[in-house]
Design a protein around this nucleic acid. Structure first.
Length: 200
DNA sequence: ATACAGAGGTGTTCC
DNA sequence: TGGAACACCTCTGTA
């Protein structure tokens, strides 16, 4: 635990800078982040971002065209191209929910239930990337779970169901309080550990 | 060269 | 009703 605190100190400024960039994001850019989080499951984040920038240039969100863009950049391009076409249609509803639902966990759960292609993990990822996670949300992917296990915060890396996700989320939140590092910053810290930089 | 694990998971089906 | 099994899919790094 002391080791993490030391590690945190050395990367604190960089992490805070990255988080402030998320918070400073213009609302016009929310949709790009929304698409990005639809693409990242089991895929390379940087290539996903390249794909997003190709997709938002399109005049029309035509499924086959999106498929072509995704084919060599992400896994599951057939499913994801469908999710993206669908998300374009429901974006207004999603945008309103971001404004209207004040409780961040409730908002995260709403997104997971109403966006095809979002589960709890990606819904949280999206909120963090637009600067609205407010240190209340855990983005539980395999890297974070591995880190939590190594730290003894959890026993097993597998998430069984929604309630189990909430349970691990609480343990992660409690840990972040205990160690005195906000959970949004811990997430980026764990990530910088694995790939040496802080992307998104 | 060929093999194989791993990539910021989610949706559907079947019982 | 809930959860286990399976489908989705291709590229990259490492041995």
């Amino acid at each position: 635990m002391e080791k993490i605190k030391i590690e945190y100190k050395s990367k604190k400024d960089l992490i805070k800078k990255r988080l402030s960039e998320f918070s400073d994001l213009n609302e016009k850019d929310y949709f790009s982040e929304f698409l990005f989080c639809l693409l990242t499951p089991q895929s390379n984040a940087k290539k996903c971002w390249v794909a997003v920038n190709d997709i938002i240039k399109l005049k029309k969100f035509e499924e086959n065209r999106i498929k072509e863009i995704l084919r060599d950049k992400t896994r599951f391009h057939n499913n994801k191209s469908k999710y993206i076409v669908n998300s374009k249609e429901t974006w207004n509803k999603i945008k309103n929910s971001i404004k209207d639902i004040k409780d961040k966990k409730a908002l995260r759960n709403f997104l997971a239930d109403n966006v095809k292609g979002y589960g709890l993990k990606e819904a949280g990822h999206f909120l963090r990337n637009i600067g609205k996670s407010e240190n209340q949300i855990a983005i539980l992917d395999r890297h974070i779970l591995r880190n939590l296990k190594n730290l003894g915060v959890i026993e097993e890396e597998e998430i069984k169901n929604k309630d189990h996700y909430y349970e691990i989320e609480k343990k992660f939140l409690d840990f972040s309080v205990k160690i005195g590092i906000p959970i949004d910053e811990l997430d980026l810290l764990f990530w910088s550990r694995e790939n040496g930089e802080i992307f998104k």
